[in-house]
Structure formats: structure tokens, C-alpha cells
Simulated scan of single mutants.
Amino acid sequence: MINLGILISGRGSNMDAILAAAKAGRMPGVRPAVVISNKPDAAGLRTASEKYGVKTKIVPPEGAKGWDYDRKVVEALEEAGVTPQNGLVCLAGFMRIISPEFVRHYKARILNIHPALLPSFPGLHAQKQAIEYGVKVSGCTVHFVDEGVDSGPVILQKTIPVMEGDSEETLSARILEQEHQVYPEAVRLFSEGRLKVEGRKVRVL
């Protein structure tokens, strides 16, 4: 059984999709253990607790940065049973860059989703970057988190066409629909032990 911890900063729509899949029995090897936010007013906290009955915790930065802050998040995760041995950490709109120490602590056990086809358009406003660059196809990527920014090994990707006249908002909305499908799928594959990292490549067994 994989104990799942999800980190959010806002509404947590990808968190919602993952928890919905777990509740529906689509990932039987996953136990949602805790949802943690750096922001006390994150709407996703209420969704997690009231809609799904999942434990929530607020870990405010209070000026702490890097590992000084992340250490508190790790403590909250481990208190909920999300350990480097049997845990999985999913970033779902967590608006902080996690420290190298955090990444090493949960080596190959942190997933993130990005609204672009990595390695294209990492960082913020990926959808806007895609439109301004003039690409014809965009999408989303679930990847393992490493010590870089959106640079970890790719697990799954979904593509969508960029339409003539798309705005950042319209493209974002269509990509988000795909995110809600592919992120729970990646979590399920991880829980079933079907992801094997070979250098930069992730093989689905």
C-alpha cells in the first residue's frame, strides 16, 4: 500500500482528480494520507477534508525558505505515514520550488504535472509560452521531480492541438482536462510498481 501525500497552494483541481480516482477504486494500492498547503486559505483543503475525508495540514512558511521550510513539510508528511519507504508525494499546484534536500529525501517518490510537453516550456506560464512560440501541439507532462525545474524523467504525456485564436486561458482549460486524466493514471502506475527509471527514460512495465 502506498501512502499518498499531496501538496497544494490553491484550489487543487489535480488533487481533486487524484482523490476522486482513489475514492472510485481506480487505484486500489493507494491510501490518501494527507493534503498539505503552504497557504491557509487554499480552497483545496476544504475539498480534501469535506469531500473526501482526507486529513489536511497547513504548513505556513513564516519566512522560512529552502530546506528550513521543507523540513517542516517532511515532518508533516511522515507524521501521516508518507515515508521514503512506502510513500508518494504529488505536487498539485504547489507554488514553491522544493529544495534539493527534499528531493533527495523522497528520491524517485515525488511526482509533478506540468502544462506543457516537457522539455519544452518549463517554469511559469507554460501555456502562454507555447502560444507565443507558435507551436501547433501542446499538452501536459507528468514527471518525476529532480533537483532542477521541470527537468525530471518524463512518465506520461498527453497532447492537444493549439487552435487558431487560442488564448492562454482557453489553452489552459483544455490542457487541464487532460491533466485530470493523466495524473491519476501516473499515480496508479507508480502504486503498481510499473514505473522503472532508466537514466532519463521511464519505462512503463
Rank of each mutant, 00 (worst) to 15 (best):
M1Y: 14
I2R: 02
N3R: 15
N3K: 14
N3M: 13
G5K: 02
L7C: 06
S9P: 06
S9L: 10
R11K: 14
M15W: 07
D16A: 14
D16L: 12
L19F: 10
A20V: 09
A22G: 15
A24F: 08
G29Q: 11
P32V: 06
A33I: 02
S37F: 05
K39H: 14
D41N: 15
A42S: 08
A42L: 06
A43R: 12
G44M: 03
G44C: 06
L45R: 00
L45Y: 08
R46M: 11
T47Q: 09
A48D: 00
E50I: 06
G53K: 03
G53Q: 05
K57D: 14
K57R: 15
P61D: 13
G63S: 05
A64R: 15
A64C: 12
A64W: 13
W67A: 11
D68F: 11
Y69Q: 03
R71Y: 10
K72C: 12
V74E: 05
V74N: 05
E75N: 13
L77E: 00
E78T: 07
A80F: 02
A80W: 06
V82E: 02
L88H: 01
L91T: 02
F94D: 00
P100Y: 02
E101D: 12
E101Y: 09
F102I: 06
V103M: 03
V103S: 02
R104F: 13
Y106D: 05
R109S: 04
R109E: 12
R109I: 07
I110V: 14
L111N: 01
N112V: 04
A116K: 06
L117V: 07
P122A: 04
L124K: 12
L124E: 10
H125V: 09
A126V: 07
K128H: 14
I131Y: 08
Y133N: 11
G134K: 11
V135T: 14
K136F: 10
K136M: 12
V137F: 13
G139R: 03
C140R: 00
T141I: 08
V142P: 01
H143S: 05
H143V: 07
S151N: 04
S151A: 14
G152V: 04
K158P: 08
T159L: 14
T159E: 15
T159S: 15
P161G: 08
P161Q: 10
E164Y: 15
E164P: 11
E169A: 14
T170V: 06
L171K: 00
L171M: 07
S172Q: 11
A173S: 13
R174N: 08
R174G: 05
L176N: 12
L176E: 12
L176D: 04
E177N: 11
Q178K: 15
E179G: 01
E179V: 02
H180R: 11
Q181W: 13
Y183S: 02
V187L: 03
L189A: 01
L189E: 01
E192M: 09
E192K: 10
E192A: 09
G193L: 05
R194W: 06
L195D: 04
L195R: 00
L195A: 03
K196I: 13
K196A: 14
V197W: 10
E198H: 13
G199D: 04
R200H: 10
R200E: 09
R203P: 09
R203D: 12
R203Q: 15
